[in-house]
């Protein structure tokens, strides 16, 4: 019956911003509901645990053709991944990802940020990218590009105060994401500029 059930094909990894997903093409059996199970094997299992594989329970007996590996791929070593199809008591041969996957190859996108001039205060708000991320924020007064300042932001839970601005001056900000665990950074975000509130002249 295994010949009846072919192994899943087109197995690939989608890894962006330290979130890793295994995907594959569905195994089509007319009139039947095919399910899948996924297993992973780290370098430790290959070298110290008789090349054993570990099942990912969240992706076992699932009909989805995608599996979130993020929780299990939490070391910077090469992993092997495989998936098979299940139909009743029948199971297909394993389809194995070609080669290895190491999270150091994840693609990193620039951070999304919002820059606010709150009176004389230059504030930045960064979209959360996950626990593995910190941000290098660069900011400067327009026209003084040689005097760029930098702030490292590790927690994005709140708005970050960057600087107190001179009245009416324009300030610019850009940022990149950094992942300490893999020692890599994203490219920089586009530069965003805001103008500080001008001085209020009082007529006495």
């Amino acid at each position: 019956t295994d010949a009846f059930l072919p192994a899943p094909q087109n197995i690939s990894i989608l890894s962006t911003n330290m979130k890793h997903f295994l995907t594959w093409s569905p195994v089509i059996i007319p009139g039947a509901t095919v399910r899948y199970s996924v297993e992973f094997q780290g370098e430790y299992e290959r070298e110290y645990a008789n090349e054993s594989w570990l099942p990912i329970s969240e992706c076992s007996l699932s009909t989805a053709t995608v599996c979130n590996l993020t929780e299990d791929i939490s070391a910077s070593v090469p992993y092997r991944l495989r998936v098979r199809a299940l139909l009743g008591a029948a199971s297909s041969p394993w389809g194995t990802l070609t080669g290895f996957f190491n999270r150091v190859t994840t693609s990193l996108t620039p951070p999304v940020l919002k820059v606010v001039a709150d009176g004389h205060h230059l504030l930045v708000e960064l979209a959360d990218m996950g626990p593995a991320f910190q941000f290098h924020v660069l900011y400067w007064k327009k026209g003084q590009e040689s005097r760029v300042k930098q702030k490292v932001v590790r927690e994005v839970s709140s708005v970050v105060h960057l600087d107190t601005m001179e009245a009416g001056a324009e300030y610019c900000v850009r940022a990149q994401a950094h992942v300490e665990a893999i020692n890599r950074s994203s490219s920089f975000s586009p530069t965003l500029c805001v103008r500080a509130q001008g001085d209020i002249s009082l007529w006495l």
Binding site: G42, E43, L54, D72, V77
Partner: peptide
Amino acid sequence: ISSIANSFLS
């Protein structure tokens, strides 16, 4: 345990 072991190996 696998993720800890693989981290230790690295």
